[in-house]
Simulated scan of single mutants.
Amino acid sequence: MAAHRTRTKVFRLGERKIIAERLPQSFWTDLHHYAMTASWPRFFAALAAGFICLNTLFALLYVLGAAFGDEPVANARPGSFADYFFFSVETLATVGYGDLHPHSLYGHLVATIATFVGVSSVAIVAGATFARFARPRARLLFAQNPVIAPHDGARMLMIRFANERVNAITEAAAQLWIIRQERTAESASFRKFYRLRLTRDDNPVFALTWTLMHPLDEESPLHGWEKEDFAHSDADIVVIFSGHDESSNQLVRDRQHYSAREVLVDHQYVDLSRSDAQGATFLDFGQLNKTRPIGPNASPL
């Protein structure tokens, strides 16, 4: 049986480093995914490399024709790889300055193939670039730490986030999950997912800030947890957000991961808002990450 080539991928979920081993090689069968997920520098570097390789290939075909006594490109210097390369660039880009042009049947055949490849490449590259540029994304600022504090007489897990664009996101919805490792009665280890109930999981018009609140009552998977439980837990807390961005008229999504060790117990967020004498309200987003211990003489962190 032939051995299949495999790969290893390293990625992170919050602070957790995960290494996936022996994944099937799927680069050529999943080019769209790689085009969408690569960074912009890598994306353009790959385009440049492909462009150079294609033109080098066609230049070598012209050189091959010339080596057998053919004159594939008129006005090209004999044996000049540079002339053939730049003629290929002009052909693939459908520029055609006119100084160099196909001269023989062989030259016309190679130029025809190059033109077809060039037109197809332009369509593919333009589509991939537009898809990357037009991909809708929410611009959310999440507080650095979740906190646990009392609210309306109940103990709450709170996570604050803000809309960086300060525009209207309608029909906004949020989910809060906790993911933790547990053992079954058969001593098997399983990664289990629990959706945490929120006091409010939707927002008709999200434009500024939103604080998610999960009551730590008897129904909560975190009921009875204290500071030490969070400090020694390997659980992850995940926020999933979605909504309709009125500026782009598109559905936007975002996601944030926290480690349970990042939860600040018996802390509360510092208020972002203040008012002046004229009644104007100011929101200081620089305070988004600031918290303070609960107590009369507590100072912000």
Rank of each mutant, 00 (worst) to 15 (best):
R191E: 14
K290E: 15
T199K: 11
D217S: 05
A126K: 03
N75W: 00
S275N: 11
A45K: 10
A82W: 09
A114K: 02
K17Q: 12
A38H: 04
P146S: 05
D70W: 06
R253H: 06
E15Q: 12
D254F: 03
W40K: 08
A93I: 02
G69L: 06
Y106M: 05
S299E: 14
L13S: 11
S247Y: 02
Y194A: 09
L157P: 03
H244R: 07
L61K: 00
F86I: 05
F44I: 09
M156E: 14
N75S: 13
A188C: 04
L109K: 02
S187I: 03
V252G: 04
S233K: 05
A207K: 11
E15R: 14
A114F: 01
L105R: 09
I52Q: 10
S248H: 02
I294P: 00
F133S: 07
T37A: 07
H32W: 14
A49N: 10
H267L: 00
L92Q: 10
R160T: 06
S233G: 02
A280F: 13
A67M: 08
P204L: 05
H101A: 14
A59C: 03
P78C: 01
A134G: 02
H223P: 00
A66F: 04
Q287K: 15
R77E: 14
E71L: 11
A74D: 09
A235L: 03
A48E: 07
C53D: 05
A82T: 12
F68V: 11
F142W: 11
N55D: 11
D70A: 08
T281Q: 08
I179M: 06
P102A: 06
V125R: 00
Y62F: 15
V239D: 00
M213S: 11
G279E: 02
T184L: 09
A138N: 01
A76W: 03
L23M: 13
R160E: 10
A298P: 01
S121H: 01
L60R: 06
T281C: 03
S233D: 03
R139N: 13
F68W: 12
L212I: 04
S120K: 08
L216I: 12
Q181H: 12
R16N: 06
Q268L: 02
H151E: 13
A298S: 15
T37F: 09
Y62H: 12
D245S: 05
F81T: 01
S299M: 14
P204I: 03
L216H: 02
W225H: 03
L141D: 09
H232W: 07
S259Y: 01
T209W: 00
R253Y: 10
T281Y: 04
W225D: 04
